[in-house]
Design a protein around this nucleic acid. Structure first.
Lengths: 373, 373
DNA sequence: TTTAGCAGTCATAAGTAATGATTGCTAATT
DNA sequence: AATTAGCAATCATTACTTATGACTGCTAAA
């Protein structure tokens, strides 16, 4: 005995309304705004049934009803309207992706900023495990008389570089030789492999020792535990705009959670190859003390390989419809940017439209396991 | 008729007490905890005088008294105890500065983290206006068949690098030539100079156009307005631990202020060459909507040149004694780190000691203009 | 000068009552 | 059999009132 069409309509109305107003919604309200054909009593009965089924709940006997996490999952999966971006939203996206030099780093920042600005939620963007990258080449460039810069080139692009102090008399020749030496040693290997303690043959010629150590240290800095990750957070203050965090306790919990950037990564991880993932509920995934919230993330690719994730974090009651649309659009935009360059963005495929063209979405997948207690 | 010794003692007691408890302090309390020799009535009289002089204020007739911003300034300047770091604090500092690759970037992060962890306040660290840097050399390194990396070397170190997509068939020779060309064009000039619109001779050979544009874009990204600055914030959630921001309104104002990282920079700017600066009050410096707070910053140098600032932001009632000590110690520690390297930290000159050895401080300077209005 | 003592002030907490939104249930209606 | 009107019951929220108690300022004595 699943959801009849009418129950579905009512549930959808409740969720829509609650997302908008963050107020328990009453039968009368539904009738007025969404289903004037029915009487409030009928709606009341249906709502009681929906409550029985676990989709709605009420705080006390005489309050309106509020959607449960389960209801939101259903909503995201089947009920929510699929929107296209409005003209002004598109404008914001263009503004951000047009002007900056699109180094990976800046792209992260831009992505996070746009997301936060448009959705009015806290957003995150980060580059995912670079430990899987394979070393192609290591360049060493003389900078001053005593220092050189080390550049690690991998199949995933240029990783962070670091400068070494080598001592007086650094010549271009020395750099070239050192370069060749370390490239020979590490070239073709995955970073994770190199980081395995016993792997490396410690037959280093004395004169390259310094360089060698630094290179190792660079690799180390990409290992999981060290992951002082390149994670960008934007709009953490936005969290306080959400009524569900009006309570100082909750606000604090949430902000602390966001502050611990490193520990945030696993939660954002976009489990499978789904483009967009929606996680709803308390104790999302692994994290223990995680405050009740919802996390919507999109993984994005550059040149075919998955490089990172971006997403938003907010209360369970968030405008999924908008968030998913924006995330989807931005992830497509980013993928179209030629790597390491900054030409104008010309993606389209979205036009001003506030119509509700509801449709079953096939792209979005909800995490069903995520709500277990 | 300045402050008599006794008035000073009482004021100091009030500030100390208020910093600790964040409760209006009463005459009786002062008597019990700090000056048992006097009666509460005497203290009451003195406090009335201090109020008259503008150092104390009370919320209503029958409440205890609270220090004014003026009192804090005096406190920082003359009254506060000069502490040394405790052993556990030293341990935290060492932990952070020992292990990381000390690229400027990581150093910023470490500094901010330590500061926040020890002081339990929100901390900030950033690299200051690189626009003043003079270009020494521009290196272009071939990365793949189609892209190259551009490295700008200045007297302040290596600035951000960016990759250019040049097109198929990038050779080392081409890079060398391009390198020489752009170095010739920009070498010896300040970045701010280069950024002046009309300055550049637009006689660029066709084949270097791409490189040339990218280099210009790099410089642009260091200009004041573009300043997507490399500013690191840590522990923004700490702000909510402070009772003065228990009010959601204020908390939000503060967090928004912190969120707008770019606009934060001018406020943090350490006006003159003072090592440590303390700014207290509302409408600190330029910023308009700035919430009431105090900002303590230290500028730090590497190889003799000022490279950045680090500091903490918190309520006016903060533990200045601790903050100043920590900031001073860390700034000294950082300066001892060889630039671009990561050897063990061995700074000392601080030992466990919780004694109050008060002394007039000569290093600290307060900003007297900051409280106008 | 210092101090004891007391009246006056005012924020905070606690307790009480009124309000009103909304439901569940029952009985009438379609 | 499904829908609806009507009404009593529930309970958060708000406003109002009163009590409590922490301080101070002031006066007069030490």
């Amino acid at each position: 005995m699943g959801l009849t069409g009418r129950k579905e309509k009512i549930l959808q109305a409740v969720v829509d309304d609650y997302i908008e107003n963050c107020q328990p919604v009453s039968s009368a309200e539904i009738r007025e705004k969404h289903l004037p054909a029915l009487s409030s009593a009928t709606i009341r009965n249906e709502m009681a049934a929906l409550e029985e089924m676990g989709y709605l709940s009420q705080l006390h006997t005489s309050s309106g009803r509020v959607p449960t996490a389960e209801a939101y999952r259903l909503y995201v999966e089947r009920l929510m309207p699929r929107r296209k971006l409005t003209r002004s939203e598109l404008r914001v996206v263009k503004r951000y992706f047009n002007k900056k030099v699109t180094e990976l780093d800046d792209m992260l920042k831009s992505t996070a900023k746009v997301l936060s600005e448009i959705t009015n939620l806290t957003s995150v963007a980060y580059v995912q495990n670079t430990e899987d990258a394979t070393v192609i080449n290591i360049k060493i460039v003389r900078i001053t008389d005593t220092t050189a810069l080390i550049i690690v080139v991998t199949n995933m692009g240029v990783l962070k570089d670091a400068s070494v102090h080598i001592g007086p008399g650094v010549t271009d020749e020395y750099c070239d030789q050192a370069s060749r030496f370390v490239t020979e040693t590490f070239g073709g290997h995955k970073i994770s492999e190199i980081n395995k303690p016993k792997k490396i043959v410690k037959q280093v010629k004395k004169e390259y020792e310094r360089v060698f150590d630094t290179v190792l240290r660079i690799f180390k800095s990409y290992s999981h535990d060290e992951m002082f990750s390149d994670i960008v957070l934007e709009g953490s203050s936005k969290i306080l705009e959400q009524p569900e965090y009006a309570n100082l306790q909750k606000a604090k919990a949430m902000l602390e959670f966001l502050d611990a950037k490193d520990e945030l990564v696993p939660v954002l991880q976009n489990s499978d190859d789904m483009n967009i993932s929606v996680k709803i509920g308390k104790d999302n995934e692994i994290r223990e003390g995680m405050p009740e919230c919802a996390i919507v993330t999109a993984s994005y690719n550059i040149n075919g390989t998955a490089v990172g994730n971006a997403g938003v974090i907010g209360p369970i009651r968030m405008d999924y419809s908008k968030v998913v649309s924006v995330l989807d659009y931005i992830s497509r935009t980013v993928q179209m940017l030629p790597a390491g360059e900054s030409d104008a963005v010309d993606t389209d495929g979205a036009e001003s439209s506030d119509k509700d063209d509801r449709a079953a979405t096939d792209k979005v997948k909800t995490d069903d396991e995520s709500d277990i207690r």
